[in-house]
Amino acid sequence: MSLETEINFTLNGRPVTVRVPVAMKTLTMLREVLGLTGTKYACGEGECGACTVKVDGRTLNSCLMHAVDCDGRELVTIEGLKSPAGMNPTQKAFVDHGAVQCGFCMPGMIIQADYLTDDDPQLTREQAQRGLEGNLCRCTGYTKVLDAVEAAVEAKRCGR
């Protein structure tokens, strides 16, 4: 069997200890070891962004990241954005603005949009376009996605 190692990290605010094969990717660990299927596989080579997660405050493609590299770090997946109070402002904006169709790319798209809007509270539509270029969507043509990002910027500014 392939070599496994134990890692400890914070996942959506809770400590996790898990043994993983050292060549396993974070995406596979999330989906198959930890049962968090919100994060999606769509290309496996960092081209589509469906597997985007937040690690130590920055987004990256979990399909490219070795699971062992999660050790000691802080991960947030799509399941971790929602609070007991409900959807976070980015999620709500995506729903309200019709940005969700088949929705398969949405966990990655929303994580990335949430990161962009947190990172730059003044984010413009043009900057959002650039920031989302690593997230492919086949349904929406991105127009409603960008509408939603603009609304999320506004909602966060108003503290909603």
Binding site: V22, A23, K25, G44, E45, G46, L60, N61, C63, L64, M65, H66, V68, D69
Partner: peptide, 26 residues
């Protein structure tokens, strides 16, 4: 490996093989 962004597609596709030791330099 560091970010893994080049290594992963290469090992997944078989273009590159892992050595006996995998080292994370991050």
């Amino acid at each position: 490996f560091c970010g893994g962004t080049d290594l992963t597609p290469q090992t997944d596709s078989g273009a590159k093989r892992y050595g006996a030791t995998l080292m994370n330099i991050r």
